[in-house]
Each structure stands twice: as structure tokens, then as C-alpha cells.
């Protein structure tokens, strides 16, 4: 049963990944990307990493891909224009691709794992047959590697502030609703009752 599920998820992951780069419509490509994430989550479940599977769906499918789809739908892409430069840039693209491929092969050929890795690590991997992988991940990330985790959080914060700084523009002359002043307004500030004598006006 597990083997059947594995082949199903694996085939669909690869097939939808191919469709991501070959679909003509960009929105279709994003939808295939989402389907690909979904099947990858299925593979995680088969590996027993159910926490990672759910987080993959919540974060990537539920939030990141929504914003991605949002942007792609808003863009007005002219497909004929996009395809015009295809043949002209094809040789350059092939050269870059081959160079990258060769580099990756070199990196993997010379990759040696540190033989003392088990002793250098700050914490051993918790025994997965005794605790759930949510607890295992929690104790690794938030107890043993908490400083590395905080540092990566700060880096992401800096990136976010940078993105906001680049796109934010302070506009003048915009009348914004300030809820606090509206709530703080009292009856005496707004209404005055005037006794008007009949036939005289104010």
C-alpha cells in the first residue's frame, strides 16, 4: 500500500514539476507548482515527517503560493512577445546551463562528510521511535540551536524591512481615518443645543 502511494505521489510530483516549466499559461504553471507542493507533502507523510508535510502545505501552499498566484494573475503578460526572444537567447541559455551543471557535478564529486560529525554536533537527533517528530524538531530548533534560529529570524526581518523601505512611499495629502480620535470624540465636542426664540433665528 505504501509503495503504491509512493509511486503515485512521486509520479505526480515529477509530472507536475515538468508541467510547471512547460505550461504556456503562467497561471496554469503556478497551479501546477501548487499541485507539486501538495504531492511533495504526501511524500513527507510517507517518510513519517507529518509535521513537515503540514507546514509545507500551510506555509508554501497556503500563503506563499497564494501571493505568487496573486501577482501572476495581476500581470498582463503577452505570450507572443515573450516567445520572440526565445531563439536569440537560446545559445546563451544553453551555455549558462551547461556551466552550472558542470559546477554542481564538481561540488558533489568533492563533497566529503566530516567523519567526526556525530561528536561535533551540539545535540544528537532525538530518538524518533520514542517521541513525535513535532517534539523532536521543537527541541532541536528551540532548545539546542536557538541562537542560530534567532539569527536566521533576524536576517529575515532585515530582508522584510529592506523590502518595505524600497517600496514604501510617504504620500502627502491623504486623508486617513484615525479610529482613536473618532472613538475619543465626546458628545460635548460635536453637539451644542441652542435655544432659538421663535421667529428670530440664531
Amino acid at each position: 500500500m505504501i509503495a503504491l502511494a509512493f509511486w503515485l505521489f512521486a509520479t505526480l510530483t515529477v509530472a507536475s514539476a515538468v508541467m510547471v516549466i512547460s505550461a504556456r499559461n503562467t497561471v496554469h504553471s503556478v497551479l501546477f507548482l501548487i499541485f507539486c507542493f501538495f504531492n511533495a507533502a504526501g511524500l513527507f507523510v510517507l517518510l513519517g515527517a507529518e509535521f513537515l508535510a503540514m507546514i509545507l502545505v500551510v506555509v508554501y501552499v497556503g500563503a506563499v503560493a497564494v501571493l505568487f498566484l496573486f501577482v501572476v494573475m495581476m500581470l498582463d503578460i503577452d505570450f507572443t512577445e515573450l516567445r520572440q526572444g526565445f531563439l536569440r537567447y537560446l545559445p546563451v541559455g544553453i551555455v549558462v546551463g551547461v556551466v552550472l551543471c558542470v559546477e554542481i557535478v564538481f561540488v558533489f564529486k568533492t563533497w566529503i562528510l566530516n567523519p567526526d560529525m556525530a561528536t561535533v554536533a551540539a545535540a544528537v537527533t532525538p530518538p524518533l521511535d520514542q517521541i513525535s517528530n513535532t517534539q523532536a524538531l521543537g527541541s532541536l530548533i528551540y532548545t539546542h540551536y536557538v541562537y542560530a534560529f534567532q539569527a536566521s529570524g533576524l536576517i529575515l526581518l532585515v530582508a522584510m524591512i529592506g523590502a518595505i523601505m524600497l517600496t514604501h512611499r510617504a504620500r502627502v495629502g491623504v486623508r486617513k481615518q484615525t479610529i482613536s480620535t473618532q472613538v475619543a470624540r465626546k458628545r460635548e465636542d460635536a453637539v451644542t443645543v441652542v435655544k432659538v426664540p421663535t421667529g428670530e433665528g440664531i
Binding site: 507529518e50 503540514m54 497564494v66 496573486f70
Partner: peptide, 25 residues
């Protein structure tokens, strides 16, 4: 009765937006 039941619920409810986006587009 899965270990990460509440995360599963959260994941499924966060997918609900796709039906709407796809319909609108």
C-alpha cells in the same frame, strides 16, 4: 487520529482560498 490533527485542519482551511481565486480568475 493523526498526531498533527490541528495542523491538518489549519492546512486544509488555508487551501480554501484557491477555490475562490481560481473561480475569480
Amino acid at each position: 487520529d493523526i498526531n498533527v490533527g490541528i495542523l491538518y485542519l489549519f492546512a486544509i482551511s488555508s487551501l480554501g482560498v484557491y477555490g475562490i481565486i481560481m473561480a475569480g480568475w
